[in-house]
Simulated scan of single mutants.
Amino acid sequence: MAKLFFRYAAMNAGKSTALLQVAHNYEERGHQVRIFTARLDDRYGSGYVTSRLGPQRVAETFDAQTDFLATFLEAGQLRPGVACVLVDEAQFLSATQVRALHELAHLHGLPAICYGLRTDFRGELFPGSAMLLALADEMDEMKTICECGRKATMNMRLDASMRRVTEGAQVEVGGNARYRAVCGRCFRQG
Rank of each mutant, 00 (worst) to 15 (best):
Y8V: 04
N12Q: 13
G14Q: 01
L20M: 14
L20S: 02
L20V: 10
Q21Y: 11
V22C: 14
H24N: 15
H24G: 09
N25C: 11
N25V: 14
E27W: 07
V33T: 15
F36G: 00
D42A: 15
R43L: 14
Y44K: 04
R52T: 09
L53R: 14
V58R: 12
T61H: 12
T66F: 11
E74N: 15
L78M: 12
P80M: 00
P80F: 09
G81Y: 00
V82M: 04
A83F: 07
C84R: 01
V85T: 03
L86G: 07
E89K: 06
A90R: 05
A90S: 11
S94T: 15
S94W: 12
S94F: 14
A95R: 14
Q97P: 07
A100H: 11
L101Q: 06
L104A: 07
H108I: 05
Y115A: 01
Y115V: 03
L117P: 09
G123S: 07
G123I: 05
E124T: 08
G128D: 01
A136F: 00
K151N: 08
A152K: 11
T153F: 14
N155E: 01
L158N: 03
E167Y: 10
Q170V: 15
V173M: 06
N176P: 05
A177H: 12
R178I: 07
R178S: 09
A181V: 00
V182W: 04
Q189E: 15
G190H: 05
